[in-house]
């Protein structure tokens, strides 16, 4: 691990990374010194080609992948190298929407939503659990699916339920891993609008990984584009879409 000391994040910083490096296999460098910072209520969109390490960044932030080097600060506290039990104290404030929704196949929608609540709040009364499950399903517009199994839902519905499972914990930051991938244009737009509406109602910060430029345009406050394991370009959607750099322009064409 990098022993270089860096200043922790400021009060309104939700996530900060410094010099994040990660390689896989025999020297295949995916991340080569990533520095990023996300402030409270900010939507940061990460763009990049497939295999450029976008998902690796958010998995490092969520503690699912251990970086080779670098530091990660969550809510101002360093979390690099901490144990899983200690990481759970931060995960309670962090939501993660997986690319394939990752709903538990063997559980109903109700049980899927109840699962994180029971883990993080084991003594929560059953009335409060029921209320929060119903509220979350209402907020994604699918209250009628409560007793269905994931196999009975469409791809778009699975994404919405996964989003409901994420927001049920009332997180301070949500990490979205390609939220619109595999969806038709209309459903993808609905999911993007849902992300914006959740951000506006909960004031939580977001890191959104996407290849969907329409989603990036709708959801982003700020964009980062990854290139060769580094942050190649940074700015607002309008700034980057008018960039003169051919490789940056290629993302918006």
């Amino acid at each position: 691990m990098d022993t270089q000391t860096t200043s922790p994040a400021t009060n309104d910083t939700v996530v900060k990374t410094r010099g994040l490096r990660k390689s896989f296999g025999e020297g295949h460098v995916v991340l080569d010194g990533i520095d990023l910072e996300v402030k409270t209520s900010e939507n940061l969109v990460l763009l990049g080609r497939s295999g450029s390490g976008k998902s690796v960044i958010i998995k490092c932030i969520a503690g699912l992948i251990e970086p080779d080097e670098g530091e990660i600060f969550l809510f101002g506290e360093p979390v690099s190298g901490i144990s899983n039990d200690e990481m759970n104290k931060y995960r309670i404030r962090l939501g993660f929407l997986f690319q394939n929704s990752a709903l538990y196949d063997s559980m109903t929608v109700r049980e899927n939503l109840k699962f994180p609540l029971k883990r993080h709040h084991p003594v929560l009364p059953s009335d409060e659990i029921r209320k929060r499950i119903e509220e979350s399903l209402e907020s994604v517009g699918l209250p009628e699916t409560i007793d269905l199994m994931p196999s009975e839902l469409s791809g778009g519905m699975c994404k919405r339920i996964a989003l409901a499972r994420t927001i049920i914990m009332k997180p301070d930051i949500i990490l979205y891993d390609e939220p619109t991938t595999g969806l038709d244009t209309i459903t993808a737009r609905e999911i993007s609008e849902l992300i914006v509406s959740i951000q506006q109602s909960t004031k939580c910060a977001s890191i959104i990984i996407t290849h969907d430029i329409a989603c990036a345009k709708l959801t982003s406050d700020r964009l980062l584009i990854l290139q060769d394991g580094k942050i190649g370009a940074e700015g607002s959607f309008d700034e980057l879409s008018e960039s003169k750099e051919p490789w940056v322009k290629a993302f918006f064409n």
Binding site: K59, A62, R91, I92, A102, L103, P116
Partner: peptide
């Protein structure tokens, strides 16, 4: 493969 184990870990379960 479908990241359900990762989702469990993020949900605070071991």
């Amino acid at each position: 493969v479908t990241e359900q184990i990762d989702a469990m870990e993020v949900s605070g379960a071991d």
